[in-house]
Each structure stands twice: as C-alpha cells, then as structure tokens.
Design a protein around this nucleic acid. Sequence first.
DNA 1: CGGATTATTATGTATATACATGTTCAGCCA
DNA 2: TGGCTGAACATGTATATACATAATAATCCG
Lengths: 241, 241
Amino acid sequence: MTNGKEATLHHRILSDIEGRIVSGEWPPGYRLPFEVDLAAQYGCSRMTANKVLTHLARAGLIERRKKSGSFVAQPVMQAAVLEIHSIEAEVRSLKLPYSYRLERRILREAGPADRQHLELSETASVLDLVCLHHAGERPFCLEERLINLATVPEAEGEDFARLAPGTWLISQIPWSTAEHKIYALSASADVAKTLDIPRNAACLVIERRTWGSSGPVTFVRFTYPGDRHALVARFTPGGEN
Amino acid sequence: MTNGKEATLHHRILSDIEGRIVSGEWPPGYRLPFEVDLAAQYGCSRMTANKVLTHLARAGLIERRKKSGSFVAQPVMQAAVLEIHSIEAEVRSLKLPYSYRLERRILREAGPADRQHLELSETASVLDLVCLHHAGERPFCLEERLINLATVPEAEGEDFARLAPGTWLISQIPWSTAEHKIYALSASADVAKTLDIPRNAACLVIERRTWGSSGPVTFVRFTYPGDRHALVARFTPGGEN
DNA sequence: CGGATTATTATGTATATACATGTTCAGCCA
DNA sequence: TGGCTGAACATGTATATACATAATAATCCG
C-alpha cells in the first residue's frame, strides 16, 4: 500500500518543507527561499517548485506575495474537518442493529417558521417529517425535517415509511451546500418521552440547512441524547495530501 | 468582494465543470471528456485541463482512473469545515467586553487520568489550569486545561494570570494537529455554580487534544452554557477555491 | 529634494513537449 | 477456449519556455 513514501519528486519536496514549518525550524513569518533557489536546491525546474509552493499556499501553510517572496503563515488553527456520517452508518459502527421509523408525515403550505428554517422568501409547499432512528431497542436520534417541495417535488410521491429521507435526498440532489449549527439543549417533555430519556437531560442538537443548485432543499434537526453521542473533528496542517 | 469572475482561464473552466456537476447535468458516475478533448473544447493545452481536473479530484468532486477517464464522484457529504475561533474573538464578535480570569494553576506529576487525556504512555509533569472567560458580566466559557511540560517546558515559567493559555500556546507551538470531541452534558453542581447557570442546565462541551511535532501538547475542555452558544460548520462541494 | 517614471524582480498563468505508469483490450498462441 | 503478451491509451509527472502582473527599487528631472 502507500507506505508514506510517494516518492514523486514534488511530494518529497513538499513534505520536506512542510516538516520544516510544522517543526518550527521555519517559524511563522520566515521567508522561504525563492522559487528559483528552491529549484536549484532540489535540482528541479521552477515549475515544480511553483507547484509545491502553490500547494502549500492553498493548504494555508504559507502566504505568497509578489516580488517579496513566500512566507510561513501565522498559524490560525481555526478550521477542523467535521465528519458527518449517515445515522445508519453511525449506529452500525457501534455494532448495534439499526432501525428506522416514520412518526409523522404532513404536507402543508410553509408557515412563517418553516420559511425561516428553509430561508424561503416566497411561500411554498413543504413536507414536514418526524422520524426516529433506533440503535437496538433504544431510541438513538430524533429527526425533524422539512423538505421544500418547490425544489424537490418528487418528495411528494415518497412515503418515507421505510427509507429515511436523508438517504433518499442524497440520491435526488447529488451535490449540495450545507450549513450546520450545533448546540446543547435540555430535553423538553416531548423530546424526553420520544427519546426515552429523563426530562431536562442534555441533548446534542445538530441543525442542517441544505441548498442545491435550484434553491433551498431541506432543513433538518437531529436531537441526540447528549451523554450517548459525540461528534469528532480533526485538523492537520496541510490537510489531506 | 469576489464577484465570481477571477477570469483566469482555468478558473473559468473549473467553475464551468463544477457547475455542470453540482447542477446534476453531469450526474454521479458520468464520465467527463478526456483531457485532450477538454483542451480542444476550451481551446487550451492539455496541461491546463489537467490542472483543472487535478483540482476537482483533490476537492473530491471527481474520481480519476488511468486509461478509463475521469468520473463524477458519488456525493458523500460527510465532511464539513468547523470554524474554531479564539474565545476572545468569539466574545468580541458578539460586541461584548471580554475578560479572562485564572481560577487554578497546579503543577503536578501526571496521574492516570491526565495520561489518558494527553495520550501519554510515560509519566511526565503536567500543568493543570482552570480558567473562566467572561462576556460582559456573565461567565461565557469554562476552560479546563492540561499542558504537557515534557513537550512545552516553557509553560512552567508562565503564570497565565493575564494571558489565556490557548493564546500563549499558539505562539509556542506554531503548527499542530488537533482532534476535537463535541458533546452535550448536564451541568454538575460545580460547573453550574461556576458558570452561573441552573443545576442540570444543558452545556455544550468541546474537548481538544493537540499534538506538535515533538508529542502531545495539551488537552483542553471548554464548557459553554448550551443555550447561549452554538457552533457553525459549512460545507460546499469543491471547497475553498 | 520630492514626486513621477522606469527597471528589476518574484510570482502567476499558460503552452508545448517528453517520458513514465497503470489499465484495458485485442490478438496471438497453446 | 483459455491464458498470456503487447499495443494503445489516458492520466501523472516533470522540464523548458514565454509572457503577464504586481510590488519594490532605482533613476531621473523639475
């Protein structure tokens, strides 16, 4: 497999420079050698050095200024990648049997609250769904969802009795933009009863708004019992590689 | 602002192809034209087409296979970028005065719990800090931190009376890897008292483990009153640009 | 001496070219 | 028919070259 070498010339140069930066040998603000010097140093052409520096710049490790040169950037560490798995995958990774149940399915005109959630300016029909995801016998997650029928009219023909709306939607809207909001909330009486947890237990809430190329698609709120669920996010300077 | 032009040839090609993908015109699995055909189509060289496709592949929008060609990838939508600001910046963005107070500072040998938090195999000295961040008059966030003195011996000489340890650390360990864990928790009696919130109120907890090039650096747990704080994460196919 | 003009310099983008590498496919031979 | 071999092909990487662009440094002149 990939034994970490990837001995292409520009990977070697890249990880060398990356190493100097993350180790602190080249501290923030340090001006690194010019492209021509790097090229000479590594015995490669300027294009190759350029590629490496461009990559480092896109990864945020360096900052480039014309005429002045390239500088090690100030570490910002303001971004981490949050992995968002499907609930089914999440449950199965705990080696528990997954099951899904539709609790409610209402078709209606969007009210003011719906319009705010979906960021709709005009009125439209929405599908209001409530589902419950189980891990084994216990409720794992409560899903409250609005689907904008103006953008996804096909949703009206789906009953979502067996297929979770999230799963169905990714097959309909292939690529989309999403915004997440994550916070903690004490369980209301309703939520506590549905999730089978004590009243006022802390819950982790994830709200997601999704847009496709033709407008707002869906708004969804996932409520997890807080002590049984955690999100994990990772950050590595230089990113993927 | 960025008016979407960026009229370099390869940005135009890139956003054109990106558009076809996100709009669904080229659905997942679709084989896009070969590099030579794209080059001909846009009247550019193969190198330029290659650059664009390489970019799209790195962004995860397409998948490339030798001999076969390049294909629109299956949408995964499993990653979102979580922006993590400094607490001071966060408070100031709410237009509230920020203040910081050190509550505790203990130097000790790492116990089993400390070693687990820092993922230390051997024993070492750690600095155990508790700080409180205020927004105006109200407590905004409780910070409980361990610093590994084997990696950051300079921390022993800091009293952290006025400077928050997070701020100090990024000046010491310029570039680092971090892992975050986010969950909800009911406030214990202690936490409730410290944060001036009701007992059992839902709190948002963010734990962060940080590594530098020479080993584990710090473990920190931020506890926020859950109803007053939310994290926001965004995902756009194609990423930064 | 100061302000405008010009030259220099480093990066940014693009092209043409070359060869390497990994797949697929077609054809060959047993 | 079955398996092997090699040609064809698409991508991957690297080089040399060219010109554009932006910022600084140097120069010139009123």
